[in-house]
Design a protein around this nucleic acid. Structure first.
Lengths: 188, 188
DNA sequence: ACGTAATTGTTTCATATCCAACAACACCCG
DNA sequence: CGGGTGTTGTTGGATATGAAACAATTACGT
């Protein structure tokens, strides 16, 4: 938003450094035991600077999640523009590529049991995305659309979670093919 | 120097970022073709900030070299304090460890033919260090001490250069043992 | 060879960040 | 229970850095 005015380099640097530091700590220890001091220290940033950009560590976590969700959203919406509509769902490969290139973040998120936020938001995003897809053609809904969307979204996240937590043993292409087949079997 | 007053975090960050950016570029392209713009851009730092800390790119290169030379000096002098004087020369392993942990820098330095500076200063440091060592005991000098120091220092740098440029195919321990044997064979 | 573009140092003003200090609160150990 | 210790937000003044502009030079393509 407000993409016209480019933000100050210092702000970008600080935020980036803080988020990186935070995610590192996040993958090392329990969220509740992470302190603002630690974050600032590791980010090589003054403690006040952290408070300048984030209200507290919960806000920081929230912003981190939001950022990736938004990235996923734009990734999907951009592709809808020039879509060849081969099927209802798009090719999942770019999604897996995104997970792959940000695996430290997603690994941390999936590893930490406490983070309901992340899973909830990711699930909500995917399920609504699927619902819109399924509504479009005049399909006779013998099964409730919302339920099916929820079902497929959960399945999808489950696969991604497994893939990430097992250090991505397959290529993104392979995963995308698998998922597309599974979706097609369920007439999505 | 002036270690009492700790420098501002911003200065440390900027310098660190600039040096890292510069060394990356240094390993990618010829030194003469590196521009301050590039350095600043990659370091995510304003161009003015580069000029604030370094007069020009030659100064920047100089400071980078100086920093590592000083690190090597302190590494050696600190060990002289608690030395068991097993032989005249100290165990070379810590030196190799230092090369190993900063291999990107040394690799860049050795790869670039243009940099006489670096090789010269490293050579000077090692040869004078050796000379001091060889003067200490009342050894009958059938060979000129300075010549021998120069000889051994060149040999040492040659080995290090080979090791670095071949991606460190042996452990630091192995290299240290080899070097110690070679030195002992030459009665150093 | 010419002209356009890029780079270089340098300056001015705005501002993000620093450091230090503070009170309030939480934690933990004896 | 009490007190030392650490964390939390928040301030104020100092300063490093940013963005933008500038003239002077250099590099480069046609």
């Amino acid at each position: 938003m407000e993409s016209v005015v480019k933000t100050d380099r210092r702000i970008l640097r600080s935020k980036q450094s803080i988020k990186k530091s935070f995610l590192e700590l996040f993958s090392e220890k329990d969220f509740e035991h992470i302190t603002i001091n630690e974050i600032a220290e590791r980010a090589n940033v003054n403690r006040g600077t952290v408070y300048l950009h984030y209200h507290d560590k919960y806000d920081l976590l929230d912003k981190c999640i939001e950022e990736h969700i938004n990235a996923l959203i734009t990734l999907c919406t951009n592709r809808e523009a020039n879509q060849v509509s081969e099927g209802i769902v798009q090719d999942p490969k770019p999604i897996f590529d995104y997970f792959h290139s940000h695996s430290p973040f997603f690994s941390a998120m999936f590893s930490n049991q406490r983070v309901f936020l992340f899973r909830d938001r990711l699930l909500k995003f995917i399920s609504t995305n699927l619902m819109v897809k399924m509504e479009k053609p005049g399909t006779p809904p013998d099964i409730d659309i919302e339920i099916k969307a929820q079902f497929m979204a959960s399945a999808f996240i489950g696969i991604v979670e497994w893939w990430i937590l097992h250090n991505m043993p397959h290529s993104t292409q392979f995963m995308a093919d698998q998922v597309r087949n599974l979706f097609e079997n369920n007439h999505v």
